[in-house]
């Protein structure tokens, strides 16, 4: 059983810029796979390589075992949801959704039936006669999704599909997308720069940095055991301890990650205190309070749950954590 999408030592250079630099990864069939990274990290280029809008400078991309070299976008068994949705402004919603079927030469009745079914799938039944310009951002997003799904692709590529939506709508669409993916059972390759989105939706996450994959794994793996300081810092926020500090605290000279929510704040000199620090500032975030600390000049953050006693700014406090929670990073 070949993987849905295979990257084998894939590079894509634009002049001197290595947008994608020797990426090797396999995406399994039926998987919800997130490509996460800051802008310019190569995640979108990777998606475009699968769609066929870019050609690799080196390496090989296969979809269900079939090498995609020299295969134009219109012959690939994948469909894309674009960041700007790219709906056709001169066609109504129905004809937008049915576009692929029209190109494939299906009859009008069949096209309209399939388009209406796809619109129902994305919870926009009866919107067929509207023009894209009359829809809200969230509705356009759904039309773009329906247009890609109507062709029943085995792999759906999504390029920051929720980036243009406001927070409430984004959270709602996250749930809907996840439910849709489970229902259809097709492979989703999802590009995002939002780590919360990647963690909450994906079966596996690939964290991109400077054209390379820094780490691939289940969201909990990536969060609990970041491979590199970059991953620790980018996925959630973390306290990255330099090797000297880790050497003093844990006995091994490696960079370490300590999640703020795992740091406990104790009265100064309390039993079990592993280090002392000074409180620089506190910020109220509603569900949690973020405490900004200085430990011998090293900035640290701790999150206090609702109801915990918030220390005074400027106060000296003791810190503790579970030794297992101090995660040593041996990646580069």
């Amino acid at each position: 059983m070949p993987a849905a999408v295979t990257f084998r030592n894939v590079s894509r250079h634009f002049g001197a810029v290595r947008a994608v630099d020797d990426v090797t990864v396999e995406i399994a069939e039926g998987e919800f796979f997130a490509m996460l990274g800051p802008s310019g990290s190569g995640k979108t280029t990777c998606l475009r390589l699968v769609a066929g809008f870019e050609q690799p400078t080196a390496g090989e991309i296969a979809v269900f075992g079939q090498n995609m070299a020299g295969v134009p976008p219109y012959r690939r068994p994948v469909n894309t949801v674009f960041q700007d949705y790219a709906l056709f402004p001169h066609l109504n919603v129905r004809d937008n959704v049915a576009y692929g079927l029209m190109i494939a030469g299906r009859g009008r009745a069949e096209r309209h039936r399939a388009a209406e079914a796809a619109l129902e799938l994305v919870q926009l039944p009866g919107y067929g006669d509207r023009k894209p310009g009359q829809l809200s951002g969230g509705q356009r997003q759904r039309v773009a999704l329906a247009r890609a799904l109507v062709l029943e692709p085995r792999v759906l590529l999504l390029d920051e599909p929720l980036g243009a939506l406001d927070l409430k709508l984004r959270e709602q669409m996250q749930e809907e997308l996840k439910a849709l993916q489970r229902k259809l059972g097709i492979t989703f390759v999802f590009v995002t720069h939002d780590q919360g989105e990647a963690l909450s939706m994906a079966d596996r996450v690939a964290v991109f940095n400077q054209g390379r994959i820094a780490q691939v794994g289940a969201p909990s793996d990536v969060y609990d055991r970041p491979a590199t300081p970059f991953v620790a810092d980018f996925v959630g926020s973390s306290n990255v301890l330099p090797p000297e500090v880790t050497g003093r605290l844990a006995g091994r000279r490696l960079p370490a990650s300590l999640r703020p929510e795992l740091v406990r704040i104790l009265p100064p000199g309390a039993a079990g205190s592993l280090a002392t620090a000074r409180v620089i500032s506190t910020q109220f975030h509603g569900a949690v309070t973020r405490v900004h600390l200085s430990m011998d000049g090293l900035d640290l953050a701790a999150l206090l749950p609702r109801g915990a006693r918030v220390p005074e700014e400027g106060a000296a406090v003791g810190l503790s954590w579970d030794p297992d929670d101090l995660h040593l990073m041996d990646g580069t």
Binding site: P73, D84, A86, L87, G100, I103, A104
Partner: peptide, 22 residues
């Protein structure tokens, strides 16, 4: 926008069809 032409190709249209329909 370029993405509109890419979308057409992505949905299976050959360049001539993209020209004709988009």
């Amino acid at each position: 926008p370029a993405s509109m032409l890419e979308a057409s190709g992505d949905l299976g249209a050959r360049p001539a069809q993209t020209f004709r329909h988009v």
